[in-house]
Design a binder for these strands. Structure first.
Lengths: 82, 82
DNA sequence: CGTCAATATACGCTAAAGCGTATAATGTTG
DNA sequence: CAACATTATACGCTTTAGCGTATATTGACG
């Protein structure tokens, strides 16, 4: 159930999935971690310019964390292949 | 061997460890992924303002990837506890 | 369909990333 | 210690994130 995330879009999608699973709105999450709703929206949308701090705060706010591991060759590299 | 990374500093440290393990300089890595040596330096130093794209490019350049998982309670949250 | 919640966008403003280019501060080795 | 490599900083410049505030879109539901 751990998701590899190599692109901003994959990360955004994972965050959104989790948020919805928790049944919380961008607004709620935003006020929880001191970020604007619009910022969360951009992040979930896969904005590559998002600041690391913003991402980490949001992750934490959703009860998630990053793990760094060696790149597994199996997954398609081309990303977002649809 | 997979490292949880909850803060910019932890991430920077992990990247640096990996880079040294590969025996490559910041300069080499930088030209490899189209980033300046100074940028890599800041990233490894734990700059929270680093752009997501910069981080992901660097990770890829080092043959690493992120995995998103549920926050494990065991690790100390206070971070960088030394 | 109407209504209210939720999300995507917009605009002016401030702060700062990363660039290009250099140089200081450290490391590393012979 | 000398000489070279590596890494940390610096400065001006351009671009953009996120803020604050607001609104346009879209979604869910009675």
């Amino acid at each position: 159930m751990d998701q590899p995330a190599r692109t901003p879009r994959q990360i955004g999608a994972a965050l959104q999935r989790r948020r919805k699973l928790l049944g919380v709105s961008q607004e709620d999450l935003g006020s929880r971690v001191q970020l604007r709703q619009s910022t969360i929206s951009k992040l979930e949308g896969g904005d590559p310019g998002t600041k690391l701090s913003t991402l980490l705060d949001t992750l934490a706010g959703l009860g998630l964390e990053f793990v760094i591991r060696e790149r597994s060759k199996d997954q398609p590299d081309i990303e977002d292949l649809f």
